[in-house]
Design a protein around this nucleic acid. Structure first.
Lengths: 199, 199
DNA sequence: CCGGGCCTTTACCGACCGGTCTATTTTTAC
DNA sequence: GTAAAAATAGACCGGTCGGTAAAGGCCCGG
């Protein structure tokens, strides 16, 4: 049971956890309210619709991921490429710790379920991905300055490829329900390179 | 409107197209029946439940993918690694041609939506992925024989990494609704390598 | 011409869906 | 103290969900 003080945040947290562990469509408003210990009337006092709630949930997922994964992993206490390694290490630990069921990426899950059905959710998730990609790209910039990578690579494209790869790895791990796949496939993550286009 | 002769196959084809273009939960039995020009009674004559239908749909998707993508791409008329390149080229063309909306991978879509909710679907999709991975692995074997790759790589793991990568690429392309992402990120696909473990 | 599968048709079911409404309680501001 | 505003409660809505039941038509071997 969620125990956060104010109802609005409790609704978001409940919806976040339920949707992440199952899917958007499989979780109903009634169930969200029940887990948040809130009546339906309160729900619709704070959110005009389930879809609007889901946009707030994505925001909440995003700050959670930033604070708990991205910021710690990308701290500047170690060289750039080692930060990427730390990122996948942290991800592995997190995915291993979700109660028997490997849940994958909350954004990837929502993206494949909703992207073709709800345009505003699709756009929001595209922004989240762009934000993660920007962080990867920043690390690549610093890796270039540190002489860890060559200047011939297309850094934005490489950052996007890295993001794509670990999303795919999480999909494989989730489908097999086996976190060890993350470790097995991790080595290719920091090796991915997209060269700059010739023309 | 689906026009295949027998009702059972028409139901499967309708469900396949509807689920692929939206999601499992967003498509109801009534809508499937309508598009297949079949009454609900007939539906439940052929399938005991929507979930059982979805298992048949996955089988249908699989043979479709085999016939239209894998078999043509992996024909032995060109060297092994070039077949992988042809695979992504074909994939790009296919994803570009789906009526304005980029739909991604039908198995990846279902996997992220259903893997944590329905164990038998999760298992079936894991088998599909294993089948694709086996084909990649076979190509890598032939690439090794042809001297195109080194023997130090872990071929099963590399095949799985390739699968993960293109699933991730399709996720990025679907979320951005932009097929050009597939081309932009394609170069890393055949470059991915997982080295054999030291111990 | 008959009987029996196979398939189809149609009407129907209870449960649950997202969402609304109105009244009431609690909090805030002056 | 009081009134407005914010929040809560809970009954209620039409629609749709997956699924069922029973009867009727079709085609077949005999």
């Amino acid at each position: 049971m969620i125990t956060e003080p104010d109802s609005r945040q409790r609704i978001i947290a409940s919806a976040r956890d339920l949707i992440y562990s199952r899917s958007y469509a499989d979780v109903g408003v009634a169930e969200i309210c029940e887990q948040a210990a809130v009546k339906k009337g309160s729900f619709y006092h704070f959110f005009p619709s389930k879809q609007e709630l889901s946009l707030a949930v994505i925001d909440d997922m995003r700050t959670l991921m930033e604070d708990q994964i991205l910021i710690p992993a990308f701290a500047r206490d170690i060289p750039p490429l080692q930060r990427l390694q730390r990122f996948v290490d942290n991800l592995y630990e997190f995915q291993r710790g979700t109660a028997g069921r490997l849940l994958g990426c909350p954004f990837g899950n929502l993206a494949l379920e909703m992207a073709t059905s709800d345009e505003s959710i699709r756009r929001k998730l595209a922004e989240v991905f762009a934000g993660i990609q920007a962080r990867f790209e920043h690390v690549l910039d610093e890796a270039l300055s540190a002489g860890e990578i060559e200047s011939s690579i297309d850094r934005p494209a490489t950052a996007q490829a890295m993001l794509a790869y670990f999303e795919g790895v999480l999909m494989m791990a989730k489908t097999a329900n086996d976190p060890e796949i993350i470790r097995k496939l991790a080595s290719a993550f920091i090796q991915i390179r997209i060269p700059r286009m010739a023309g």
